[in-house]
């Protein structure tokens, strides 16, 4: 685990339709100096993106209403420089590759390890050379 005191605060937009999941993630990421704002659907996420600035976004691929990939496309239109990490409920590389094709930074399959996620987030924000285990 990274020592908290040396890590700058990262503003993160977490988009997932599972409220239980987003609420626990906010707590866990908060402990790792990552301030997460949550959106439970694509529309909400786009509204938030209009109002605020984020360093990174974590986006679930499978959501009710607007699909994760569609949200990704909209994100890339509104904020082309915003790194987006995709979350998938399954290990399908094909879906992930479609994400890459639309400019996703990386992808993770659920359930993942929090340390792995924070490493990728930091890498996305700072372009750090941390290696994931």
């Amino acid at each position: 685990m990274m020592p908290k005191e040396f890590t700058p605060i990262i503003r993160l937009l977490l988009v997932d339709d599972e409220v239980e999941f987003t609420s626990i993630m906010v707590k866990r990421l908060g402990r790792r100096n990552i301030v997460a704002t949550t959106a439970n659907n694509g529309d909400q996420a786009l509204l938030l993106l209009d109002k605020n600035t984020y360093d990174v976004a974590v986006l679930d691929l499978k959501m009710e209403g607007m699909d994760g990939l569609e949200v990704l496309k909209m994100f890339k239109l509104k904020a082309p420089d915003l790194p987006v990490i995709m979350l998938t409920g399954h290990g399908s590389q094909l879906a992930a590759e479609e994400g890459f094709a639309h400019g996703a930074f990386d992808y993770l399959s659920k359930p993942y390890d929090i340390e792995g996620l924070t490493q990728i987030i930091r890498k996305a924000v700072f372009g750090g050379r941390e290696q994931h285990e």
Partner: peptide, 9 residues
């Protein structure tokens, strides 16, 4: 995977 992810988290 989603509920498992929540449990793990």
């Amino acid at each position: 995977n989603n509920p498992v992810a929540i449990m793990v988290e």
